[in-house]
């Protein structure tokens, strides 16, 4: 049972520091640099790793915003092995045998998608995330990449997802939406597309 709940717990853990809030229709300011517009009501949470919105629950459909990942940073702070390593062991120059997958501002579009799928798969307890398609796209007019992916976590409920990413001012902006392949992905996809298309990124 714990195994099955793990992906859900992982998703909730993304934003565990903040309580869920109602996101009413209209313009939503996500940060000093980013805002979106939604025509529907969502439930949302946010913390230093980004924002997570859902219509039917985080295990069913999820819209995730990673806004302004800096050069050299991991997608999730919890995946920064060196940063989270015991400081005494750090002083002794003893490191665990674990790579931190980090964003680089020089990454190509393909590498950005690969960075995302590796980090997401790691978050989902080492589940392989399959990229099904990739194509050039833009995010708020910034050249980037659109991708589709799928994976089946330990709860055996296959998820489908898509995302759009771009590097703006040397920082990564990546928004992706996922849902259960059997129902929720299609159910809320159009609204997720609309929210992503509305994203405004303030430069500088």
């Amino acid at each position: 049972m714990t195994r099955r709940l793990l992906p859900l717990l992982m998703l909730i853990a993304l934003t565990a520091c903040e309580s869920w809030q109602k996101i009413p229709p209209g313009a939503v300011k996500l940060s000093d640099k980013a805002e979106v517009v939604t025509s529907q009501t969502w439930s949302g949470q946010g913390d230093r790793d980004g924002f997570i919105w859902t219509q039917d629950g985080p295990g069913m459909d999820t819209l995730v915003f990673h806004l302004g990942i800096k050069d050299g940073k991991t997608l999730f702070e919890s995946q920064d092995v060196e940063k989270n390593h015991n400081f005494i062991l750090k002083l002794m120059n003893r490191q665990p045998d674990q790579i931190s997958f980090r964003f680089s501002k020089t990454m190509t579009e393909w590498e950005i998608v690969e960075f995302f799928t590796t980090s997401w798969g790691k978050l989902m307890d080492d589940v392989p995330v399959k990229v099904e398609a990739m194509a050039p796209a833009s995010l708020d007019g910034h050249p980037g990449i659109r991708f589709q992916y799928s994976y089946t976590p330990k709860d055996e409920l296959r998820r489908r997802g898509f995302g759009v990413a771009a590097v703006v001012d040397d920082k990564l902006y990546l928004v992706h939406y996922l849902g259960s392949a059997v129902y929720h992905f299609d159910k809320n996809k159009a609204e997720a597309e609309q929210v992503i298309a509305s994203l405004k990124i303030k430069k500088g």
């Binding site: 045998d97 674990q98 790579i99 931190s100 997958f101 590796t118 798969g121 790691k122 080492d126 392989p128």
Partner: peptide
């Protein structure tokens, strides 16, 4: 090849 790349994604460089 899939199995090898799963191993890579574990991120355990030395092993």
């Amino acid at each position: 090849l899939d199995f090898l790349l799963d191993e890579v994604k574990l991120g355990q460089f030395r092993e």
